[in-house]
């Protein structure tokens, strides 16, 4: 195992594992975010369910442990994408084909993972600035204390819902979020199945299956975040 990470496949494995871990995080994130749309449906007052979700994530010790791991996941995924891309550009050489590349049937996303990743990263910076830094007390934020149902009891906590709601009344921010979500969806259509291919879990039978699952994951995550941002702007 000693020199696994110095081998090309080892470095790809890191991209794969960190990518799948980040997808897992996104599913948790989307689940909590979906509470933004569910209050009316489940018979709660506006924002109650979401505030309970935020309270749960903010107070759960497991989340505290996983938070630095998540940061590491982002770091590994970003740093290794840059290392791999740099090596690949070197391997490609400086000379381009004068007649271009006319190979058909190659996914556009698979050839543009870095630009899509940069778009997602740009969104991530805006996103962290909008919410995370306020919730962590890095930027000033004075939320009201509100009551909400919490596992059958009533708990009090910060009114995160109002902040989210107010942020999404700004059309510019909503557009940035929609673009970020769409970039994410395209990134995942290739990224998800490619991660399994890199681990080695693929063959001629699973290839079409994984590509379908990949598209489903991309639509659920990218579409989910898009719908929530738009719904907050349009209907709440």
């Amino acid at each position: 195992m000693s020199n696994l990470l110095t081998a090309s496949i080892g470095r790809k494995l890191l991209m794969s594992i960190s990518g799948l871990f980040l997808i897992l995080f996104l599913f948790v994130h989307l689940t909590i975010n979906s509470f933004l749309l569910l209050d009316g449906v489940l018979g709660f007052e506006e924002g109650q369910l979401f505030n309970a979700g935020v309270h749960f994530m903010g107070t759960n010790p497991l989340i505290k442990i996983i938070e630095p791991v998540l940061a590491l996941g982002f770091l590994v995924h970003i740093v290794y994408s840059l290392i791999l891309t740099f090596q690949n550009m070197k391997a490609r050489g400086p000379q381009r084909y004068a007649s271009g590349k006319k190979t058909k049937g190659v996914e556009w996303t698979s050839q543009n993972m870095l630009p899509l990743g940069i778009a997602i990263f740009a969104f991530l910076v805006v996103h962290i600035y909008n919410f995370y830094m306020k919730m962590k007390g890095i930027l000033p934020w004075e939320p009201a204390e509100v009551e909400f149902p919490f596992f059958g009891l009533t708990a009090t906590g910060e009114d995160a819902y109002t902040m989210v709601h107010e942020t999404f009344q700004n059309l510019g921010i909503v557009i940035v979020y929609v673009i970020g979500s769409i970039a994410l969806a395209f990134h995942l259509t290739h990224g998800f199945w490619s991660a399994f291919q890199t681990i080695g879990w693929n063959n001629n039978i699973w290839m079409p299956r994984l590509k379908v699952i990949s598209s489903v994951v991309a639509i659920i995550l990218g579409g989910g975040f898009t719908v929530i941002a738009l719904a907050q702007y349009l209907f709440f």
Partner: peptide, 19 residues
């Protein structure tokens, strides 16, 4: 190991090779 040493790039599963 030899492939890496000789300066070939890292596969990103684009599939252009297969085509």
């Amino acid at each position: 190991a030899k492939m890496d040493e000789l300066g070939f790039g890292n596969c990103t599963n684009t599939g252009a090779c297969e085509v």
